[in-house]
Write a protein that binds this DNA or RNA. Sequence first.
DNA 1: CACACGGTTCTACTTGATGTAGAAGTCTCG
DNA 2: CGAGACTTCTACATCAAGTAGAACCGTGTG
Lengths: 122, 122
Amino acid sequence: MATLGDLERTVMDLLWATTESTTANELRDAIAEVPAPETGRELAVTTVLTVLSRLEKKGLVERERNIRPHRYRSVTSREDHTAELMHEVLVTAPDRDAVLARFIGSVSEAEAQTLRTLLGGS
Amino acid sequence: MATLGDLERTVMDLLWATTESTTANELRDAIAEVPAPETGRELAVTTVLTVLSRLEKKGLVERERNIRPHRYRSVTSREDHTAELMHEVLVTAPDRDAVLARFIGSVSEAEAQTLRTLLGGS
DNA sequence: CACACGGTTCTACTTGATGTAGAAGTCTCG
DNA sequence: CGAGACTTCTACATCAAGTAGAACCGTGTG
């Protein structure tokens, strides 16, 4: 499975936030703004580049190598990725029906309603 | 989140497989039988003990300390744990409805049917 | 055409999680 | 009380992830 670290997640969150592709430098700046200025520190671009390469290796990010400042974008939408993760978790269990029962019990009524609609009749 | 390593998962799988509590020695033997004899190697009991302690720290396992060969058991059922994980994943996304839509699209028809039943009418 | 400069890749170190287990400490029964 | 079973401490290896300097590359300008 693709488990992400803090910085990796931050980067993915930023990439997921736009449909546009981004450059490493733009990301470095964006990260500095994130609601966790902590040490108010700014990362080195190479750090961002390393993370992007790792995310690319994990298949979460793709880049345009033909143009110079390479441009990065997420391969899947955040929703797709999250749904995929959920499914991966589900299939680890032998008794999926039992898992689903408990899962349903944990979602809000609003979400349950959404599910009813999605599942349609029959 | 509680991400498990290979050995930790093996141990949890064994604990989840029985309602009974188990001892470290029993687990060591059981692990040796697992469908991945690999090197056919047998772990040291201390190794199992270490893993159990870590799982206890993670809140996945509890033990009876009063009796001598401490007896270990899983705190939650495998189904509860899996459903919990799924929920944790779900709530990381801002747009949960969108995630649910994609998730529903990824489950089998049989599972969809199970969900319909679980969600009942209305 | 050479080079300066922005950008990318390589290499490397640090930390934390996990696998693995010996050494040492602690019960318990006989 | 002592031996043996059991547990805890300590320790090391490996791997993922954060972090970044050093080295390498490509392109536009003089």
